[in-house]
Write a protein that binds this DNA or RNA. Structure first.
Lengths: 343, 343
DNA sequence: CTGTTAGCGCATTCAG
DNA sequence: CTGAATGCGCTAACAG
């Protein structure tokens, strides 16, 4: 009763009164054309018998799977969205995408996922920098499987050339500029070191912004990873500096926590405190007040990644294409920052 | 340079000076034991040559893939979390999970995903009720592939027996009870019809709760799908009823929107308005005030689903096990409802 | 156009 | 305990 011995092309061939080669031909529209009559017969037989092509056999035979593997650090929020868009783009390109999560940064799970995908002989791999250790990546590259890194900043060239990265640094840099323009007298970056490179990028951008646009403004950096007491922090922040104080939050989640604490403390937003988040989550739009945030061009990033992979499939010469690509974010202003009158 | 002709057991066999059968034996610890010496030789050779078993060939040969396919309506929030937990449980059971999203309720994408998975000859399928049409489901069942439905309430028995469902109805029912106990004089369910069956379950539970615990309390039902003006709604709600009014929100996202509107309108929570969400998201915990919500036992639900699938693999007789299983949620109380003094 | 044939890489009898 | 042989389902030349 289990697995009713799936029907194969042999049976379809028999039913249609043709050879298996013919069945194979008509069923995947290969270069070879068949007579209308034959096509009809085969398709009919296949339909009636409920034929379903066995991917393993096909893949084995032509050593090409039309499968792309995706390894992400998780599947929530940004990652989940990205996965959805990548799936769509992969599909448009005639491939399908198998999504795997490394459940945080667990190196064991990471290796296992990778092994599974490689043993499957996927045509290509898309991995999020955060989900991969250097060793794993080297092993992919050595295996000869084309790889596109997402958000893998500054990876050693010998193990991975180029990546599709979000412009977090630039966004944070611009955030400082925006906050200063909105009269902030002190600036603070509230990060999340647990997110490693991601946090690093934001921090870098923040510092760069300070240097370029606010060298005379007081600034500081704190981290939420070790259960920062946000209320105490905000209180102190406002005591120590002249309002309004501007905060660049690690993401909209962190921004929400800050916002909530501020609401609780009756801190006025944006008069006393201004906040900019990143991701432009559901949260940013639906909190009160709304949180100004940087929107991520999921679709564009996904497209870019898939295209880059496709490009590698064609194994063209290693042109300049192999460099890192930066995908810019878009600022969406809401009530958590003081809207400029001009414009 | 692409695909450096992956090494096969033939080469490993040659390098180790044994036959391919022996290599196969030692490499997957089959029932047959080999001499220590042979094992050593083979493992060494495999290691040095960088051998990686070809899943397709293995699967083809034994018609068993150790792969489970997962089809979800999306990958954000609840779905993403669920996927992660399912992946872990699948792994613990010796399988791996390939995750696919149907991108909402698009029947085309749904069929395609299904087809891909079936053609892959996955050993089993886990599908979210929302992601599947009846026809697709029937086609799975007919294919003989074991299927476990998640959150598939009241499916026709002939196409899918049993499912692992979250107890949304009961949670909503209890919500009404809780709100009444906390002195609410009027109750309202703010739903989201766009989520179809999910919303239906909640609505049912709400109505059941009203009937059983609050038959004398004024109540109403509204829907956010068609861009409900939440501020206007809240204003009207509080004008029409005696405070405090209790709201059962579709989920924490909807709850956040209501909360934000309330904050904006300076409505006092929980004195004038009480809110209960569902999902116990990040939002619920980090908003101000915190939102009372129902926590989802992801891990338990995932375990249950995988176990049920495993059970089907053993194709035991269709025991009573085939009935629907309900997974209960847990209430987490926060400031959006009035904490009872007792307890 | 259509049929024949030879693998793809591996697991699995069944003899030695 | 090990090896030679057979087949999984399909594709890809190559003949007819």
């Amino acid at each position: 009763m289990n697995k009713p011995k799936q029907v194969t092309i042999v049976e379809v061939a028999a039913a249609a009164g043709v050879s298996i080669a013919t069945v194979s031909n008509v069923l995947n529209r290969g270069g070879i054309r068949s007579s209308k009559e034959t096509i009809r017969k085969v398709e009919l037989a296949a339909e009636q018998l409920g034929y379903r092509r066995n991917t393993m056999a096909a893949g084995l035979s032509r050593s090409k799977t039309y499968e792309i593997g995706l390894i992400l650090p998780g599947l929530t929020n940004y990652y989940g969205q990205l996965a959805e868009h990548l799936q769509i783009e992969a599909h448009n390109a005639g491939y399908h995408l198998s999504v795997f999560s490394s459940g945080g940064f667990d190196p064991d799970i990471e290796r296992r996922n990778l092994e599974v995908l490689l043993q499957r002989r996927v045509d290509g791999l898309i991995c999020h920098g955060l989900a991969m250790g250097f060793e794993s990546t080297r092993s992919i590259v050595n295996s000869g499987t084309p790889l596109v890194l997402i958000n893998g900043w500054n990876w050693p060239e010998d193990i991975a050339l180029g990546a599709v990265n979000l412009g977090f640094a630039e966004a944070c840099k611009q955030s400082t500029k925006l906050l200063v323009e909105r009269d902030c007298r002190a600036l603070c970056y509230v990060g999340s070191k647990g997110s490693k490179v991601i946090d690093e990028q934001r921090r870098m951008g923040f510092n760069a912004g300070i240097q370029q646009y606010a060298s005379d403004v007081i600034h500081e950096i704190v981290d939420t990873t070790k259960d920062l007491d946000i209320e105490a922090f905000l209180t102190s922040l406002l005591q120590r500096h002249v309002a309004p104080v501007g905060i660049v939050a690690f993401d909209d989640h962190v921004a929400l926590r800050i916002l909530s604490a501020a609401n609780k403390l009756r801190i006025e937003i944006p008069n006393q405190l201004q906040i900019i988040g990143i991701n432009n989550d559901y949260i940013a739009k639906n909190s009160y007040p709304g949180i100004s945030s940087w929107d991520i061009p999921y679709s564009y990033q996904a497209q870019t990644a898939i295209n880059k992979l496709l490009h590698k499939f064609g194994n063209k010469a290693e042109s300049g294409e192999e460099r890192e690509i930066e995908v810019p974010l878009t600022f969406i202003e809401r009530e958590s920052t003081k809207l400029l009158k001009t414009e």
